[in-house]
Write a protein that binds this DNA or RNA. Structure first.
Lengths: 257, 257
DNA sequence: TCGAAACCTTGATCTGCGTCAAATGTAGCC
DNA sequence: GGCTACATTTGACGCAGATCAAGGTTTCGA
């Protein structure tokens, strides 16, 4: 990895609290790679040898069962994935696939487990990142079990709008087929649900969404901060832990005195 | 806390790898309490001051939205809960309620955050426990999104049977209304689904379930180790991390040399 | 032991959403 | 620019599951 890449990685929340020695150990055998769109990074059930950190692009986490497939999460930078399998040295429960051309850092799983034991600052950062991932999944499960498809879509649009500046017009970050899968519905049903939202001021032209009556949409959606994380785009790279503390201020990792 | 309780707690996976000093700090201000059935331990959205560890009994984790309620998880001993909120010092995303009379250890959140930074062994154990909780939730989300109600029920019965000794007759661990909520369906639909499973050899009498044609049930359920964790009852208290590594052998926490 | 409350089951009806098919639109490649 | 493949939309239909109501069963407290 080049020096400039090392600096970018060092600035990530996962690595801010670790010692220089720890950082060298982790990055010595690491890869920073670009993958084209549609690349399968790993399959569910696979043994996991690397921790993946998405630095640029979009990655989709999927699961399958009995010839059915669903999108469990859409990751945007900066996100780790498959961290739990690495921490526990267990097989991955999800598949990962790039949605668009992506830049991904791959860190050795054994190295991660080894330095966690030696560097409390790093172990704390891993625990925090893991906690953030967990909370994100709690929101997803609540969203799926408590809301109908139209409600999930309405809340998704409100959240995307806020994350993209709150100007009431924005672009869907990826194709509609993947969005339908993420929302737990078929593409046909997504199409019908978007059409139903025209009555609430939502217009869609290709990937562009315009919301002309945000108050009406919000009355339908009934957003809830315990399900929906409305954090806008941040200037600096933020980890999952920080995102899951929003709107509370950052809790900097303190190392042992 | 009495000495015998301290020994029980010390033996838990979360505390095995920490130093004696860390253990004393954590347990000095801890409470070990019994709560009757139906006690609300905390509400979603509440600030969290304690980590809860369920030592005996059953606890239900719930979420609500727009007058709807769902059961997100049913905890059995030994389980931590609200760990993510403690690690991140954030508000809880779920409510917790005792289903039956329960014994719960309550550890100070600030103390946990403080000693994590100082004791890598403990921080690693927290990260592992967090990873185990995360994987459990991945299974739940896959179960919810990929399977219909009847399929979730069939798999639930197979899993419960194995967890209770695999003798093809067992007792439901709690009331059917809570089970329906956990499986993401109404009590009426649970009743009809149980009736539909008679064709697959499932008989229910009150809380007692008998499976007379396990092969037929399994053909319907199509269990998948990436969704269903069929670990049987263990003799020793196991943490979530260990359960999520099953059937792989335990990965003992190593402390810095 | 009895009554009230909660749980559970059953019946009838409705609805959200999946499935299947076909048509239209868009993107990519030659 | 044209062709192909894929995405998306639209139409028709069916079903899984929710809702509402009512009756039966079980549990708990007085």
């Amino acid at each position: 990895m080049r020096d400039i890449d090392l600096e970018r990685v060092r600035a990530l929340p996962l690595f801010r609290g670790c010692s220089d020695e720890t950082f060298r150990t982790l990055t010595a055998g690491a890869f920073l790679q670009r993958f084209p769109a549609g690349t399968t990074l790993l399959l569910e059930g696979d043994q996991v040898d690397f921790l993946y950190v998405l630095l640029d692009g979009i990655v989709e986490l999927q699961g399958t069962w009995n010839d059915r497939e669903t999108t469990l999460s859409i990751l945007r930078p900066v996100s780790t994935f498959i961290l739990a399998a690495v921490v526990l040295d267990a097989d991955g429960l999800m598949s990962a696939r790039t949605v668009e051309r992506s830049q991904i850092l791959m860190l050795s799983g054994p190295a991660i487990r080894r330095v966690m034991v030696e560097d409390a600052g790093f172990a704390v950062a891993v625990a925090q990142e893991m906690a953030g991932c967990y909370r994100g999944l709690v929101r997803s499960l609540k969203n799926q079990k408590l809301r109908g498809g139209l409600e999930r879509l309405a809340n998704y649009l409100i959240t995307q709008n806020l994350r993209q500046g709150g100007l009431n017009t924005f672009n869907l970050p990826h194709d509609k087929r993947t969005l339908a899968s993420l929302l737990g519905m078929t593409p046909e049903n997504l199409s019908r649900s978007l059409a139903a939202l025209v009555d609430y001021g939502v217009e869609v032209h290709g990937p562009t969404v315009t919301i002309s009556r945000p108050a009406a949409l919000e009355r339908l959606a009934k957003p809830d901060p315990l399900i929906d994380n409305h954090q806008p785009v941040t200037d600096t790279p933020t980890g999952k832990a920080q995102r899951e503390r929003w709107p509370l201020p950052d809790h900097p990792v303190r190392t042992a005195g």
